[in-house]
Simulated scan of single mutants.
Amino acid sequence: MKMIASTKLTQAQRAMQTAKDYGIANNEVVSHATPDGDAGKRRLFVVVSSDRGLCGGIHSSVSKATRRALGAAKPIPEEKVPAADPDSPVMVIGDKSKMQLSRAVAKNLSLTFNQIGKDVPSFADACAVADLITTSGVEYDSVVIVYNKFMSAISYEPAFVEVLPAKALAESPGFKSYEMEEDVTKDLAEFQLANAIFAALVEGHAAEQSSRRNAMDNASKNAGDMIGSLQMKYNRGRQAAITNELVDIITGASAL
């Protein structure tokens, strides 16, 4: 299983490097689209997880980060969590984090999405999620994507990326200097959201495969240790049985 996970990790890392271009483009848009004042604190948290297990704490990582952002868990001083209304809606991609958050912040859950992450996520998957968000009717001031940031082959950490809606883009100083039709700004906002979701999905997938490979490696080592321990116990028992039989034979021979 470790070998299979290692192969999938290589594929996921290759896809992650390609998807980072989408994230860079999004950051460039956001840097020129900061609205006057605060964009609002009613944020839609999109938690990027998956439906599969056997990958360590990859799911609880984003679940706990979301709970901290909503004030449902103790904050970490060094973590940069966007200010949010405790009643902010939450959308979960993946059944694992959905089960965790349904126990902690059930009143915040508004949308769920699954069947993503069995393979390397595609841009079509991200577009489907973005379309679900835009057509859901959920009210929010901005979208905050919570995902696992790939640090290395052995580490990851939860991260947040904020995406502004069409209204915030239109009201930002960088966009007010240009005359744009409403449809153009709306299309740009939807495309920007899909880009950000795609980058988060692919990077989260790479972190998941990395964690799964490490989990399988630890499981293999633990199984090897257990087999060695049981083999030693078996050999000791076999030697003890042989010794007892020899003692009985020698005792019987001596009695004759």
Rank of each mutant, 00 (worst) to 15 (best):
N222F: 09
A189W: 04
V202C: 11
L230N: 07
S172K: 04
S6W: 04
K80F: 12
N26T: 12
G224K: 15
D87C: 01
T66G: 05
N108Y: 05
S63F: 03
M99V: 09
K167N: 10
K20V: 09
M91E: 10
M1L: 13
V143S: 03
A73L: 03
F191D: 10
Q13E: 15
T243I: 10
Y178D: 04
A83E: 08
A153H: 10
G228M: 11
Q192Y: 07
G53T: 13
A159C: 10
Q13N: 14
V129E: 00
I24T: 13
A130E: 01
I116C: 01
E208Q: 08
G204Y: 01
Q115I: 13
S122K: 10
G228P: 09
T112W: 00
Q13I: 10
A106D: 07
G204W: 01
I93H: 05
N27F: 03
F175T: 03
Q209W: 08
A215L: 05
D217F: 11
H32A: 09
N214F: 05
D141A: 11
A215I: 03
S6Q: 07
L256S: 14
S88R: 13
S63V: 09
A240W: 09
E79L: 09
V105P: 04
L54P: 00
R236H: 11
F123N: 10
P165D: 00
S102W: 04
T251L: 12
E162G: 05
Q13D: 12
K96Y: 11
C55Y: 02
L193H: 02
L9S: 00
I116R: 01
S177I: 09
K74M: 13
S220Q: 14
Y156E: 08
Y178R: 05
V62G: 02
V146D: 02
A159L: 03
K186T: 15
I133N: 07
L246Y: 06
V146P: 01
